[in-house]
Simulated scan of single mutants.
Amino acid sequence: MGFHEIRFPANLSFGSVGGPERRTEIVTLANGFEERNTPWDHSRRRYDAGVGLRSLDDVERLIAFFEARRGQVYGFRWKDWSDFKSCPASKTVTAVDQIIGTGDGKTVSFGLVKTYRSGGAEYVRPIVKPVAGSVKVAIARDDKVEGLEFTVDPATGVVTFSTPPDTGTVVSAGFEFDVPVRFDTDRIQTSVASFQAGDVPTVPVVEVRV
C-alpha cells in the first residue's frame, strides 16, 4: 500500500467533520434477545475535508494535494483536531500520559498506544503516526532523552531503547499524533460560483490500516 509521510494542511482540516466508526453485527434471537459481535478490533475514522475550505486559495491547495496523492492511491497524514494528543486537548503532553508497556529486561521496542476509558471498560488504540519531535518517554517515571536513550520511528510509532528497561518497570510516553488516511473518492467537484455563495465540496477521507 502506498503511503506518503506528509500531513494534509492542518489549517484546512481545522473545522472538519468526522470521527470514529465501528462495525457491529446484530442478530435478534427468537426470544427477543440480541447477540452483538464485531469483526473489527479497532475503530476506523472518517472525515470530510471539504468543510474546512474557506477561500478559493484553499480549494487550489486541496486540489494540488489531491492530485499529488493520485486520488485514492496514496495515503497521507491527517490531524484530527478533536483527538491528536496523548492527553486531554487542554493539557500539555508529558512522558507519563500513557502506559505503553512493562519492562522484562529483554524487550527494547514498544509500540505507542492511547487508552480510552469509560467506567470499567477501556479500548487501547495503536498509534502508528506520531508527530516527529513530540514524543516524550519515561521508564518508572524517569524521563529519557531522545537520540541518546531511545529513538522513535515516526512512520510506525515504535519506540526503541538503547538498553532494555528493567523487569517490572513501567514504560510510559506522551505524544502528538496524526491519523493515517486516504481520500475516499477519485473525484472532486468544485464551482467558483457555488463556493462564493457559501457552498463547499464534499471531500470524504477515511482511515487506513498501516
Rank of each mutant, 00 (worst) to 15 (best):
Q72K: 14
A89K: 12
G75W: 11
V59Q: 13
V27G: 01
R77D: 15
R36S: 10
A89C: 00
G75R: 06
R46S: 00
R70P: 02
A30F: 05
F76Y: 07
P39E: 02
D41R: 14
R44T: 05
V51N: 00
R36C: 07
L56S: 09
D80N: 15
A49V: 05
L62W: 08
G75C: 02
L62K: 13
D80W: 13
F33R: 14
F65I: 08
D83T: 01
D41C: 01
A64I: 09
L62V: 13
S55A: 07
W78C: 01
E67S: 07
G50L: 08
N37A: 13
F76L: 04
L53Q: 06
G52V: 00
F84E: 07
G32K: 11
D80I: 09
K79D: 08
L53D: 06
S82Y: 08
V73D: 14
G50P: 06
Y74M: 08
I26Q: 07
A89H: 04
A89E: 15
D80H: 11
W40S: 00
F84P: 01
E60T: 15
R69N: 14
N31Y: 11
R54A: 01
W78K: 04
S82T: 08
V59Y: 14
I63H: 06
D80Q: 12
S82Q: 12
F76W: 13
F76H: 13
D80C: 06
E60Y: 09
E34Y: 05
R45Q: 05
G50F: 14
E60C: 02
S43T: 10
Y74T: 04
D80P: 07
S86E: 13
A49K: 07
S86D: 12
G50M: 08
H42A: 02
E35F: 14
L29G: 03
S43M: 09
Y74R: 09
D41Q: 12
H42T: 03
R61N: 07
C87I: 08
P39R: 11
F84I: 04
R45F: 01
G32I: 12
V59D: 04
L56G: 05
A89N: 12
I26P: 05
N31L: 03
I26E: 11
Y74N: 15
R70M: 10
E67Q: 14
H42Q: 12
W40H: 05
G71I: 08
W40Q: 07
A49I: 04
A89I: 14
N31S: 12
A64Y: 07
R77A: 10
Y47V: 00
E34N: 11
P88W: 07
Q72G: 03
D83W: 09
D41Y: 10
D41P: 00
A89R: 15
G50N: 04
L53K: 06
R36Y: 05
S43Q: 11
D83C: 01
L53M: 09
R61D: 11
Y47L: 03
N37T: 15
R36I: 12
W81R: 00
E35M: 07
E60D: 14
A30L: 09
A30S: 12
A68N: 14
V59F: 04
R69Y: 04
R54Q: 05
K85A: 15
R69L: 05
A49C: 05
F76T: 03
